[in-house]
Design a binder for these strands. Structure first.
Length: 347
DNA sequence: AATGATACTCGGC
DNA sequence: TTACGGCCGAGTATCATT
């Protein structure tokens, strides 16, 4: 039996509790880019805002056009604070359950003998933090997550073998976690509009189109043969920081300055985690909003404060040579970590 | 031919 | 009129090594 806990409109709900001002208002949590006063995107919005069509990912300017100023507040996302609240929720959940895997800042997967404790999670989180969540319970982690999606906000939905099967088979393609707009569109080419209709597609054709892993998984949705186990908790494998440039540019100094600013934070994380890194990547978001990247790996693990200035410049120069578009946002990513401690056991 | 490493893109949240 | 973030892991093609 699996439980899936999903906090309701998490960032916006946390902001509602934190600001008495927000009571009864549309709350739009924004990631401001600093490019112009209102440029940026919506991270999330409460249900009052969703009712009038404001959505995550929407440009802030567009959201402002829809929101009556007197009835709405726009607040900058404060991820450190949300991470703190997330850690408190994590602690609460781990006091109740043994097998827990946190899958994002506001979602948890749990394995338990029964569904009995599902209402208890909701009660305790409400009582201790005054936050609502939705809990899905099902024979598989996938079913539990889809149950939670269906029941939100502030819901509880418990499925058995039959109702889980039905929920998945009757589901629209995009409502299955892992099927996005691209996969859904490609499946429509096969004449598939609901998950259950995947039964009619030759598994080989799915593998052909989507690759071994994804194709096999899609086929499993139709046969009911999808994974029934909780995954392992994994250590973070990469750390990245992104930023928006003041203006679109192809100027090396502008980009290097931004990278230097961004990587400080990422490197601090590496230091705190007592890691070394072997791979780093420069990410480019061009004026057409497309994402590109250039990466390289060192033969040996590098300390958190290793100087990578020359390598960064080389990757940027390479990108500029291959690509003629202006760059709007830039980012840096470190990965391929090695532990600096506890290596003695290797010998 | 098999296995592993690397570079890069996709997409969820 | 247009408007647009910052993360992270999964997946895959291709290259290198044996």
């Amino acid at each position: 039996m699996y439980l899936h806990v999903d906090m309701d409109y998490f960032y916006a709900q946390v902001e509602e509790k934190r600001r008495p001002m927000a009571k009864g208002k549309i709350v739009v949590v924004c990631m401001y880019s600093g490019r112009t006063p209102d440029s940026g995107a919506v991270a999330t919005v409460n249900y009052l805002g969703r009712e009038i069509g404001i959505k995550a990912g929407m440009p802030i300017m567009l959201a402002k056009k829809r929101a009556p100023p007197a009835d709405s507040i726009f607040v900058p996302a404060d991820r450190e604070y949300y991470a703190l609240i997330s850690a408190q929720i994590d602690e609460i959940i781990r006091k109740i359950f043994k097998r827990v895997v946190q899958s994002s800042i506001d979602e948890w997967n749990i394995e338990d003998e029964t569904a009995e404790n599902a209402p208890k999670i909701k009660e305790i989180i409400k009582k201790e933090l005054d936050l609502t969540c939705t809990v899905g319970v099902a024979p598989s982690p996938l079913g539990a997550k889809m149950a939670a999606s269906k029941a939100k906000p502030d819901g509880l939905l418990i499925l058995n073998d039959q109702t889980e099967k039905k929920l998945i088979e009757d589901s629209d393609l995009e409502k299955v976690p892992g099927i996005g707009p691209k996969t859904a569109e490609a499946l429509r080419e096969f004449g598939v509009n609901k998950v259950g209709e995947l039964k009619n597609v030759d598994p080989m054709a799915l593998v052909e189109t989507f690759g071994k892993k994804s194709g096999g998984w899609l086929h499993s949705l139709a046969t009911g043969n999808y994974p029934k186990e909780l995954g392992e908790e994994k250590e973070q494998e990469e750390v990245s920081r992104y930023g928006t440039l003041k203006e679109k540019t192809r100027d090396m100094n502008m980009m290097i300055n931004k990278i230097d600013e961004l990587e400080k934070d990422a490197r601090e994380w590496i230091m705190h985690m007592k890691k070394s890194f072997r791979t780093f990547t420069i990410m480019f978001i061009t004026e057409d909003m497309k994402v590109h990247s250039k990466s390289m790996s060192f033969k040996n693990p590098m300390p958190w404060n290793a100087d990578t200035n020359e390598e960064e410049k080389a990757l940027i120069a390479e990108f500029l040579q291959e690509n003629h578009l202006y760059i709007r946002r830039i980012g840096i990513r470190f990965g391929n970590f090695m532990d600096l401690s506890g290596q003695t056991t290797l010998f």
